[in-house]
Design a protein around this nucleic acid. Structure first.
Lengths: 152, 152
DNA sequence: CAATAACAAATAACGATTATCTATTTATAA
DNA sequence: TTATAAATAGATAATCGTTATTTGTTATTG
């Protein structure tokens, strides 16, 4: 998570003005690893910035992605998610509760090179998404099964 | 690409009726490797089935995904793409022309196991997307650069 | 201090997808 | 084959995430 000073520098370097709203969106995003949607960030910021509009959140997120302070995720929901961690790393999404977590400790740079040689593309980016059931939901499922067995 | 008879069996086995429209959507999708959007399939089918509506295409694609005859892709566009090849394989998307190709010859099963052990999730699916510039667009870019040099 | 440009907020617009409703078609068994 | 019940297709409208537009405000520069 970058400091306000660094964020300011980066925005200015790309010709964008620095406003309290923009810093607030960045810090709300950088403070969490929950990969929120625009709507979630908006709801979180509204108490602090009662005049902020959802359109401003979207526009700011677009700018943050453009200048390399965030990345956009799409796990197949109806809405985008955002991540202030722009390092190359996979994400994993729980099919039960919908949470999205980072996956750290997988080396993916080899994949990119392989993909380039398979396809003839010049490969510049990649996104890796896993889907399954998170630990909390797995436990819940085990509890549910146990409960059902008692009923029978 | 499965034959109509097999598709019929699979749909019936899942309790769905088999209609000319459903077979047509499946075959239009299975015939191509371009990973079309619903709109594209609709435009392709309209001359053959003048009464078909876009809603029917969407509903049919949803059913095909549910019964395992297709999968849904999302490379970050505003619309979903669909693929009748349901085997686990990555996709690669050209940032210039937007085309989406299959990547074959990458082994991904190890990744899934690694992700499970990193996160504690039970991992059931994955999607791998690469982004870059396709061979055709790379050539075009080279030609454009050559042209610019002449002008100077 | 004036002039200019960029901005935030509000609103409307847009477009992909889904829900609803009705007439039609399919599957099934007599 | 044909009658019947259930499921479907198509038309239409609705929904919702996202983007464009407009207008008044703020910040910056000379």
């Amino acid at each position: 998570m970058l400091q306000a000073k660094e964020v300011t520098q980066i925005l200015r370097a790309h010709g964008y003005k620095v406003t309290p709203q923009r810093l607030a969106v960045y810090h709300a995003l950088a403070r969490t690893t929950a990969h929120p949607q625009a709507e979630t960030l908006y709801a979180e910021l509204l108490p602090l910035y009662p005049t902020m509009s959802l359109a401003t959140v979207y526009k700011t997120l677009g700018i943050l992605c453009e200048v390399g302070l965030a990345q956009e995720l799409n796990v197949g929901e109806d809405a985008y998610r955002y991540d202030a961690n722009t390092a190359l790393h996979p994400h994993i999404c729980c099919r039960v509760c919908g949470r999205v977590d980072d996956v750290s400790g997988l080396s993916l740079t080899g994949l990119q090179r392989e993909a380039a040689s398979c396809t003839g593309y010049e490969v510049t980016e990649q996104q890796v998404y896993f889907y399954g059931v998170c630990p909390a939901c797995r436990e819940q499922e085990l509890r549910d099964e146990a409960g059902q067995r008692k009923v029978h």
